[in-house]
Write a protein that binds this DNA or RNA. Structure first.
Length: 579
RNA sequence: GCCCGCGUAGCUCAGUCGGAAGAGCACUUCCUUGGUAAGGAAGUGGUCACCGGUUCAAUUCCGGUCGUGGGCUCCA
């Protein structure tokens, strides 16, 4: 499809959704006249409207509201735009008791504002809108949620109703089916079904316990990481989990990140549990005098950090309180920045390709809480932009969203069903080298200040695993499958035969399970399918007599009369080529 | 942290408008040796999240705590 055309379709859909949101507000006002309306825009996959209604709505109310909306659609009420002076509009909404609208109008800079009227319902709105309520397409109200007025937790909590709308029933159904698919792929559900991990009340919220299959997946990712980092000139370092509070004061974490940290005391000395890995890496750098010749120094650690996340944001593996980052800190000269950032971007690119992710980049600039000088910040932001522009990589800018010590490039990867996740990030830091008085001896014999890059590729292993589980829908490629092969016999006559096959595979490092239970083959296959194991090896009388295997693959296709050596080679090729 | 919902067996879920707690799967045992998504039978298993209150009686009603789900806010 032509891009411009596609865009038009999107604009139309936005208008449709926005008008559906107004339609919902009209229905709500008719059913619950005491409700005050707040704000109701179109969003990525639908729309919402925030209402101030202290008793709150129930799921039952949603059904009623939806019915009333359909009635209003049938009446095909014209939607009319009017332009009013601000004062007139203020009077109007004041008389109607719509206090939230007053706040919105007061925030508008112009002299005039537009309002949209449909029947007895009038709303402040820039528009545009459909010409009448009958033009609204297929819609469905989805869920209720609390939302702060204007997104600020100091404000009152309103009730938000989310819905979605499309031009026709077919598109709506397709979207609802997509939501079902999202549920099927949910890593929390698959995590249980595939016995990957648990989060126990008894252990604590946001704390992950890996079961054997999940631990294997994690081990495979870690192994991958170590190999890839060694290839790219990184050195491994390992730091402690707790460091003296003094260190965190010096680094600025205590002032800027304290709310997210845990603290403890040992022999009357205060310690902080690390929320980031940088401090130990800085100590390694400082341990001897550094020459300009040895830069960049790249220190890598699968570093486990603990952060106090608010209880309401915890979510499966995606948001936890203790997680392990594939973290590295690179110490380098300013003249090396461009090239090194490019190296990291290439690292990200290569990695994302292996996992079949597309991605987008975003630059985040100086936040309100920051350390260092504005000049350094501007310099760092400039270099990040320059690299992306030079490489022709498109990016968005996220103003004020940088880390407290430096601006960053965030990489948002896109999974198999089009959702975006933030994993990799590259952060440029002039501040910590200053605070810890880092230096190197330059070619002219003078001491100079190095720059630090903080970066992760997969990000947090927990989150990355969560994303991977959903991305693959639990069907991991062979190289990442916790169990690559299940061998099943048909009767116990073949016990010795399948055991010898099992041993041969295990000897080659192939992750294999043996199913010699007293069950029918169909039962064993069913369980193999449910567990999403890539290869099922069937060995009955026939195979035993011809000394071959029958291999049933995850897609249901079958390889017959396979020689054991060929099968082993096939899996080894899968492993090496990361398929 | 805040708003709303939810918490019953290992899992998925019924159920009790207050009066001795149920199913399917899983697990154990027995029968069955069966060629591509559930063979049969019997059995084990629950302080109904936790703490408190109301009541003759609470898994059920009320309050609190913890956990969890959808969001807000925040972030890897």
């Amino acid at each position: 499809m032509d891009e411009s055309l596609k865009k038009d379709v999107n604009i139309d859909l936005d208008v449709l959704r926005h008008s559906t949101s107004h339609l919902m507000a009209q229905a709500v006002k008719e059913l619950f006249p005491e409700v005050k309306v707040a704000i109701g825009p179109a969003i990525e996959n639908g729309f919402y409207y925030d209402f101030d209604y202290p008793p709150g709505f129930t799921d039952n109310d949603l059904v009623k509201i939806e019915e009333r909306m359909k009635e209003i659609v049938k009446k095909d009420i014209p939607i009319e735009r009017k332009v009013l002076k601000k004062n007139e509009a203020l009077d109007m909404f004041r008389n109607a008791g719509e206090t939230y609208k007053l706040e919105l109008i007061e925030a508008i800079d112009e002299d005039e504002v537009s309002i949209y009227k449909q029947g007895d319902f009038t709303d402040l709105c820039r528009g545009p809108h459909l010409s009448s309520t009958g033009k609204v397409g297929a819609f469905k109200l989805l869920n209720l949620a609390g939302a702060y007025w204007r997104g600020d937790e100091k404000n009152k909590m309103l009730t938000r109703i989310y819905g979605t709308a499309f031009q026709d029933e077919k598109s709506l159904d397709a979207y609802l089916q997509f939501l079902e698919e999202v549920k099927r792929r949910d890593h929390r559900r698959l995590g249980k079904e595939l016995e990957l991990f648990s989060i126990y009340d008894e252990v604590g919220a946001g704390l992950v316990v890996y079961h054997p299959k999940g631990a294997m997946l994690r081990y495979l990712l870690e192994d991958f990481e170590r190999k890839e980092h060694l290839k790219r000139g990184y050195q491994f370092v390992v730091g402690p989990h707790i460091l003296k509070l003094e260190m965190w004061k010096k680094s600025g974490h205590f002032d800027n990140y304290r709310d997210n940290m845990y603290f403890t005391k040992i022999d009357d000395i205060d310690y902080g549990i690390k929320p980031m890995n940088c401090l130990s890496h800085i100590m390694v750098y400082k341990s001897v005098i550094r020459s300009y010749r040895e830069l960049p120094l790249r220190y890598f650690e699968l570093g486990t950090v603990a952060r106090h996340e608010k209880s309401g944001v915890l979510h499966g593996l995606m948001r936890v309180r203790e997680f392990t980052q594939d973290d590295a800190h690179i110490f380098l000269r300013q003249d090396q920045l461009h090239e090194e950032i490019l190296n990291i971007i290439n690292f990200v690119r290569d990695t994302m390709k292996i996992f079949d992710f597309e991605y987008e980049m975003e630059i985040s600039t100086r936040p309100d809480k920051f350390i260092g000088t504005i000049e350094d910040w501007d310099k760092a932001e400039g270099i990040l932009k320059e690299v992306l522009i030079d490489e022709g990589i498109p990016f968005d800018v996220n103003e004020g969203d940088g880390a407290f010590y430096g601006p960053k490039i965030d990489i948002k990867l896109k999974d198999a069903i089009g959702r975006k996740w933030q994993c990799a990030t590259i952060q440029c830091d002039f501040a910590l080298p200053e605070r810890f008085d880092l230096h190197y001896v330059d070619s002219d014999g003078k001491r100079k200040r190095p720059v630090m890059l903080h970066r992760v590729i997969l990000g947090a292993l927990e989150r990355f695993m969560g994303v991977l589980i959903e991305h693959y829908g639990g069907k991991f490629p062979v190289w990442l499958s916790p169990v690559q092969v299940i061998i099943m016999n048909i009767t116990d006559e073949q016990d010795a035969y399948v055991k010898s096959i099992y041993q041969s595979l295990v000897d080659k490092g192939i992750r294999t399970e043996l199913d010699t239970r007293n069950e029918k083959l169909s039962m064993k296959i069913r369980e193999g399918v449910v567990k999403k194991v890539p290869y099922m090896v069937i060995a009955g009388k026939k195979e035993m007599n011809s000394n071959t295997l029958t291999v049933r693959m995850r897609d249901g296709n079958e390889l017959k009369d396979v020689r054991l050596d060929d099968f082993i080679e096939r899996i080894q090729v899968d492993n090496i080529s990361r398929r």
